[in-house]
């Protein structure tokens, strides 16, 4: 385990050092990318100045909203759909093809319909995430062993109690996987939409900084988004691993 950690740290450190060297040597010019240590300093400055906090807050609020909507809708839909075989089989081709569809292509359409605001961005984040949650939920429910449901019946539990005490706890790791997916898609949807067309938000600020050659804002913001998504993803992954380890699965 320690060797794995060492390897990972080595890879990241190596890549950063390589970038640093390339930047300092002038192979990568200053207009393209400032050296990593510069980006780090700029990021700290940016966070201390606090000027962009409203933008960051707005983007994060939209990400959380898209996540919450996709997650709750997905879990409820998945649970209900699990009970209706025909409906589920009919929707299967849609689920299988869904992630091949460029959902962003609908963004212009949404702007035309809802106007240029938070609505279309949240909707894109929601649409990207919701199907992943439904599919993961169905997958988890499919794996609940019949014997556990029978045990609940023998303990004279009704459908609701069975769901709360048996089915959902069994699906807990799947619920976490679904949360990871929904969160990742919420980020992609919201930031991407802000990027394509918006009047505020982190994605918009990045685009704005880009057009003004303001690398001191652009790079720290990009790094901040990447760090946020990696950290959130990491926390959920860690939690998921704990649950699985308790069940003797890796």
């Amino acid at each position: 385990m320690r060797r794995v950690r060492l390897y990972q740290v080595g890879v990241i450190a190596g890549l950063l050092l390589l970038l640093e060297a390339l930047c300092l040597a002038g192979v990568i010019d200053k207009i393209t990318m400032p050296p990593p240590h510069r980006i780090a300093v700029d990021l700290v400055k940016l966070l201390l100045a606090g000027k962009l906090y409203p933008e960051i807050g707005k983007s994060l609020a939209n990400v959380l909203l898209a996540f919450g909507l996709a997650y709750s809708t997905g879990i409820v839909t998945g649970t209900v759909l699990h009970g209706y075989r025909t409906a589920r089989e009919t929707l299967d081709p849609l689920f299988a093809t869904y992630y091949a569809i460029p959902v962003f292509a609908f963004y212009p359409l949404f702007i035309v319909i809802f106007g240029l605001g938070d609505g279309p961005q949240v909707l894109i984040g929601f649409l990207l995430g919701v199907v992943a949650v439904i599919v993961t939920m169905l997958n988890g429910l499919d794996r609940v062993p019949r014997v556990l449901r029978k045990t609940a019946s023998i303990c004279r539990m009704g459908p609701f109690e069975t769901a709360v005490h048996v089915t959902l706890p069994f699906c807990a790791p799947y619920l976490l996987t679904a949360a990871k997916l929904a969160l990742a898609y919420a980020f992609i949807g919201v930031i991407g939409s802000e990027f394509i067309m918006a009047r505020s938000g982190m994605g918009y600020e990045i685009g704005y900084a880009y057009t003004n050659f303001d690398n001191a804002t652009m790079y720290p913001l990009i790094v901040l988004i990447l760090l946020l998504s990696i950290v959130m993803n990491g926390v959920l992954t860690h939690w998921e691993k704990l649950l699985l380890a308790r069940r003797g699965q890796r």
Binding site: I31, T32, M33, K180, L181, A184, F187, I188, I191, G192, F195, G203, I206, G207, A209, Y210, M218, Y219, I222, I225, L226, S229, I230, N233, G234, T237
Partner: peptide
């Protein structure tokens, strides 16, 4: 896996600069 889940869209300005 972590790379897979990051919003790669944010990397676009870097790609354009490069």
């Amino acid at each position: 896996v972590a790379l897979y889940s990051i919003p790669k869209i944010t990397l676009y300005p870097i790609i354009l600069l490069a």
